[in-house]
């Protein structure tokens, strides 16, 4: 094998690897925060900025399941969280203020509140076909002061290197959502 051919193969392999890699999660984690004090948390209903009416409702149970899988926190039932939000007059399409975060923490006996916003949810054209996509932002605020301690924006789609090479359908929206949430939570735990 000539050196030039070796370089070509290495270049092709590098391109292939790059094509298979997903965009990194953009995240912020407060440097002074100690996650050890957070034992119990709640997940408020996600906001939906996408065209799909039920995108937030679909993503929230996925987030809840992945959060439980991390086994890092105890999670208050979303039904109780929703009831507390209603009592505080917190609507589904408004981000909670720091005061509301504090009030929610007191009502639910939780040390942290997770929020989420679905920015893009559905299908996008990619190559010759359609792929499922999800772009979302997740945040965690501590309930003593209501300040945000973690924020992550993640964008994932159902394409992959092997699908591009050999063809095949996009990963399901459910799988794309799970992967996106997992990647986002990995930046926290």
């Amino acid at each position: 094998m000539t050196p030039r051919l070796g370089i070509r193969i290495a270049f092709a392999a590098g391109l292939a690897l790059l094509a298979g890699c997903a965009a990194p999660t953009t995240h912020f984690l407060h440097p002074d925060v100690d996650l050890g004090f957070v034992k119990r948390c709640a997940v408020v209903p996600f906001r939906n900025l996408s065209a799909d009416r039920f995108a937030a409702a679909r993503l929230q149970p996925v987030f809840l399941a992945e959060l439980l899988q991390s086994e890092a926190l105890q999670v208050v039932d979303p039904g109780a969280t929703q009831a507390a939000c209603n009592r505080l007059g917190l609507g589904p399409d408004t981000a909670p203020t720091p005061e509301q975060i504090v009030a929610l923490g007191e009502a639910l006996d939780a040390q942290a509140i997770f929020t989420g916003t679905v920015e893009e949810y559905g299908q996008r054209r990619s190559g010759g076909g359609q792929v499922n996509v999800l772009t979302a932002t997740f945040s965690m605020s501590e309930t003593e002061t209501g300040s945000m301690v973690w924020n992550a924006q993640v964008s994932r789609d159902g394409s992959s290197f092997w699908r591009k090479i050999f063809g095949g359908d996009s990963a399901s929206q459910f799988d794309v959502s799970r992967r996106a949430v997992r990647d986002a939570l990995e930046s926290l735990f």
Partner: peptide, 22 residues
């Protein structure tokens, strides 16, 4: 459709398990 199941402990009000299928 998707089905999402969660098991809620009646004593603590915490979600003890969650599952989903498509």
């Amino acid at each position: 459709f998707s089905l999402h199941l969660r098991v809620v402990d009646t004593g603590t009000g915490l979600v003890s398990a969650a599952y989903g299928v498509d």
